[in-house]
Design a protein around this nucleic acid. Sequence first.
DNA 1: TACCGGTACATAGTAACACTGAATAGCGGG
DNA 2: CCCGCTATTCAGTGTTACTATGTACCGGTA
Lengths: 109, 109
Amino acid sequence: MGKQMTELLKGTLEGIVLALLSGRAAYGYEITAWLREQGFADIAEGTIYALLVRIEQRGLVDVEKVPSEKGPPRKVYSLNARGRADLAEFWTTWGFLAERLERLHHEGR
Amino acid sequence: MGKQMTELLKGTLEGIVLALLSGRAAYGYEITAWLREQGFADIAEGTIYALLVRIEQRGLVDVEKVPSEKGPPRKVYSLNARGRADLAEFWTTWGFLAERLERLHHEGR
DNA sequence: TACCGGTACATAGTAACACTGAATAGCGGG
DNA sequence: CCCGCTATTCAGTGTTACTATGTACCGGTA
């Protein structure tokens, strides 16, 4: 993956995962697979698991262990109230940034 | 500044500065002031100077020392060919990300 | 039985970046 | 003569994503 993408993902990736979880509960392996489908081909599993640990420790998600038919038990994450508040704040921050970049891009300033 | 903004700026700030320099040459103090005008109120001066050192060492900009009437000499940065190539790549990467986030935001997935 | 591939999670170490807080230095005005 | 504005630099810190593994459970197959 490009170095630029790596740096741009810092901060963004968490928002992406929170946004996904706002739609439906999911577990790490599933999230990784979904990201790959979305075109984020090279996001390492370890990255996602580390991110999930972080947002859990910050109290943004609720966790439930669910047995799997095909392997070790899944840790299913779902967004709670604090997570939704954090996501809303993320969209605000992102919107601010995206607006300014869009302007920069098209004005060629 | 919000922690989210701090993280979102990683990678983005460099693109912003490169975009600015693609329009006109500028020096650190001036860039900081311009960013504040654009609404990035709390970007530390030290951050910009460190960024300028980085892009200079990567050979994305040309530097010229210009005496100032009001203080120590200015280091004026201008985008060169490699910088323009890097900026183009940045816009591609940014576009990919922005598109996916826009979709996530409006589909509520 | 023994092995392998797919599922699923975890972690130690590294690199990159923005921030904090301070120091240095030139210049003009009160 | 010091204060404020201009202008740059740097050491130390925290956060994040990546690399590279390791662990573990399961079903199928030779």
